[in-house]
């Protein structure tokens, strides 16, 4: 365990992250319910972004189909409940969604792990659309366009005798927060592991990686499986929060949202997609609330990102911080 002294030095070193963690931990105490729920969504998108960015940022593969995998994970909870009528504790579904998503990734990876660049993107777009049309058209099995209701499941085997809003903002929120920190830790280990460095080597130079004795397709495939599995897991966490799963979440423009939130946060940074997930969701929800032209606003913000802050919010933050403290060069976040 970390000693008291160690903890203090970590806080000194990363004051902003410490502040964010404290805010996240205490949020339900003072924030309005609506905002707390949006942050819960944002955390789930943060997990999705981490999983997506293992491919984009660390392996150099841009998937335009991750919304399909997210939806797949969500349906792995709603469909068993729809067909059995039994509601198990959420962990059962999380495990089920994780395993089935990993299997899906293993299968689809056979097709796409050998492809890169636009061909990888489009293959994944196709996968996402096949998943979408499956959920949409097999209405007898999936509920079709109406989707499927997701009841509030027990957590860790415990049922809570509270109303839905309190459950979401005080109980499920902390559950998601815990899941988020676990995923964050897992991904931090992955990208800083031997495997993570191998992926970055493949990303930087496929041919050199091959001539370094790295079996590039194998590791791309593994990265893909991990990414799909955690995206499915995020989808499964999302299902009870949303209370409902519908095919539209698999639609390709939602894959665009996942790409967007990752670039918004900064895909060159480990923490980028997390910041992106939180900011993107809050921003999108509030713009939808204030204007019907939210797509226009999103589009303009995207243009600003592409042309003026390609390193995303984290990159922007780091360069501002460096300018304030007169440091030169950029450091990894």
């Amino acid at each position: 365990m970390i000693s008291r002294k160690g903890l203090i030095s970590i806080i000194r070193k990363y004051p902003i992250y410490t502040l964010i963690i404290i805010i996240l931990l205490t949020l339900p105490i003072y924030a309005p319910s609506f905002f707390v729920i949006q942050i819960a969504y944002g955390l789930i998108f943060g997990i999705t972004g981490l999983a997506f960015n293992l491919l984009l940022g660390y392996t150099g593969l841009l998937s335009f189909g991750h919304a399909g995998f997210f939806a797949f994970g969500a349906y792995m909870m709603s469909l068993p409940i729809r067909h059995t009528g039994i509601v198990h504790t959420l962990e059962v579904y999380l495990a089920f969604a994780f395993i089935t998503s990993a299997a899906l990734g293993a299968l689809l990876g056979l097709i796409c792990a050998r492809r890169t660049r636009i061909f990888f993107s489009i293959l994944n777009l196709s996968f996402g659309l096949i998943i979408y049309s499956f959920f949409l058209k097999f209405w007898g099995f999936t509920g079709g366009a109406d989707g499927t209701h997701v009841p509030t499941p027990p957590l860790l085997g415990m049922k809570f005798a509270v109303d839905k809003e309190y459950w979401m903002t005080h109980i499920y929120y902390y559950y998601i927060l815990a899941a988020f920190f676990i995923c964050l830790a897992i991904f931090w280990v992955i990208v800083n592991s031997n495997f993570g460095k191998t992926l970055q080597a493949i990303r930087d130079n496929e041919i050199r990686a091959q001539f370094t004795g790295i079996r590039i397709y194998r590791y791309r495939h593994i990265a893909y499986i991990i990414s799909v599995a955690f995206t499915g897991l995020a989808g499964c966490l999302w299902a009870p929060l949303n209370g409902h799963t519908a095919p539209e979440i698999a639609w390709w423009t939602y894959s665009g949202d996942i790409v967007m939130l990752t670039i918004l946060g900064g895909y060159q940074y480990f923490i980028g997609p997390v910041i992106g997930g939180l900011v993107f969701n809050v921003f999108k929800i509030y713009t939808i609330g204030y204007t019907v032209y939210w797509m226009l606003l999103l589009g303009i913000i995207l243009l600003i990102l592409i042309f003026f802050i390609p390193r995303g919010l984290v990159g922007l933050g780091i360069s501002i911080y460096n300018r304030l403290t007169h440091k030169k060069g950029s450091s990894k976040g």
Binding site: V189, N194, Q200, A201, R208, I214
Partner: peptide, 28 residues
């Protein structure tokens, strides 16, 4: 590997030689 430090360039190669380039849960 342009995006890696010189140190990591070498470590990736050593890992590959030692066949531990695919270890997911061992921090480099």
């Amino acid at each position: 590997f342009e995006g890696l430090s010189a140190f990591d360039n070498i470590r990736v190669a050593i890992n590959s030689r030692e066949r531990k380039e695919g270890k997911i849960f061992s921090l480099i």
